[in-house]
Amino acid sequence: MARDLPALLAALPKAELHVHIEGTLEPEMIFALARRNGVSLPYASVEELRKAYAFTDLQSFLDIYYAGASVLLKEQDFQDMAMAYFERAAADNVVRAEIFFDPQTHTARGVSMETVISGLHGACVQARQRWGISADLILCFLRHLSEEEALATLDAALPWRQHFIGVGLDSSEVGHPPVKFARVFERARALGLHVVAHAGEEGPPEYIWQALDILKAERIDHGVQAVNDPALMQRLAKERIPLTVCPLSNLKLCVFPDLREHNLPALLDAGLCATINSDDPAYFGGYINDNFVQTFAATGMTREHAVQLARNSIEASFAPDAEKDLWLRKIDRLIEEGSG
């Protein structure tokens, strides 16, 4: 007997390609780490902090996001935060996680690059041992800062080059076009790093063109504004350039006024390699399966869409081909067994 749609969404093996590890920091852990490290918070309780999660746009979220990260001081803090995410990811049948981290958020507070990367890498190793999750790190540059600072950050991270597979671009999008970071991305590519970039969340389609043509991005993070440029849509479909879409994030940050109006079905139906991800799940009300279930309920997407999204996520990942083949066969078996 075939599973119902929510059960299928939960059962499908999937890759999460757009999750900021600092954005998985739940209020309870923020307060626990604050106590452990003697950090004073501007909120009296977990409940008061949660009430502050009434964002009107990306910047209003980032202000709280950076405040929450202030409790991360030691290697164990970064490892504990990532392990809490991996435990949730395992429960959601995430088989591959490519995790964004923002070293500048931490080095600006005097936390060493080694502390950040070693803590997160340790969690990636443990996640494979404990849950069989394949995980890698992607170092992101904060686009509201200068390219010179991004170049310095990349240089500072190179002693731990073996612990991250790529670079990305995040933080405040509007007013900070991808072209601003042409040189640092050129340097990253020369080092053999994968390249991704946030573009077309709040910014215009032109930012997506820049990410592709100037940064040579292999994936576009968000990319939902692409629907406003027919030529761009054709290119994304033809070249199978993945979009790492984050529906609940888009809703929480007012990119879409209602989840029923999200354009993910249109992206899929236009032949784009779109995927579902959680972005900053502690702040946006849901991890990856929450994003699947709520988006499907709101938009009326089908079982075929579900299977396509799962397959897209695996194919769009930077995992070794042998691992991808294994996961894609698992999806096929799930469908063949009547679950799909």
Rank of each mutant, 00 (worst) to 15 (best):
L142H: 04
S171T: 03
P178E: 12
D280E: 11
G340H: 00
A150N: 01
A217Y: 14
Q210G: 04
E47F: 00
P242Y: 07
E206P: 12
Y287K: 10
L193W: 06
F284I: 08
Q294W: 08
S278F: 00
L267H: 07
R189D: 06
T295R: 07
T295I: 05
F55V: 08
P13N: 02
P178G: 10
L33C: 14
L259K: 03
R143F: 09
T302D: 12
L151R: 00
V94A: 00
D279V: 10
R36A: 15
G223T: 07
A127D: 00
M113D: 02
G340K: 01
W327P: 01
A89F: 05
S112L: 02
P103Q: 15
L151M: 09
L72H: 13
A67G: 14
G271K: 00
T56N: 14
Q59G: 01
V224Q: 15
R303Y: 05
E218G: 13
S60A: 03
L328W: 11
L193V: 09
G175R: 05
L243M: 06
P247C: 11
L259S: 09
D229E: 11
R3I: 14
L158H: 15
V167L: 12
H222R: 04
D269C: 08
G223Q: 11
A188M: 12
E47S: 08
G285C: 14
V307N: 08
L212E: 11
E28C: 00
K324N: 08
F101A: 03
P177H: 08
D77Y: 13
E218L: 05
G119Q: 00
V227P: 05
S278D: 02
H20I: 01
D325P: 05
A10E: 14
P257T: 13
L49V: 08
Q225L: 04
K180D: 09
L251V: 12
H18L: 09
P242E: 11
H176P: 05
N289R: 15
F61W: 04
Y85S: 11
E201W: 03
P42C: 14
E186Q: 12
F256D: 13
D280K: 07
E337Y: 01
P230R: 03
T107Y: 06
Q234E: 09
D258G: 03
A157W: 07
K324V: 14
L72Q: 14
V174M: 04
G110L: 01
V95R: 14
G300H: 03
I220K: 14
G192P: 11
D321Y: 05
E75F: 11
G286K: 10
D80L: 05
L326R: 11
H18Q: 10
R128Q: 03
T302Y: 10
E202R: 09
E323A: 10
A316C: 04
H262P: 00
S112W: 01
K238H: 13
F31M: 02
L259C: 06
Y85F: 13
P27N: 05
D92W: 08
I241V: 15
F318N: 11
E114V: 02
T153L: 06
K51C: 08
D155K: 13
E323I: 13
D92M: 10
A266T: 13
S339I: 14
I314Q: 04
H144Q: 02
C124L: 09
R311S: 15
L17V: 07
D280N: 11
Q76F: 11
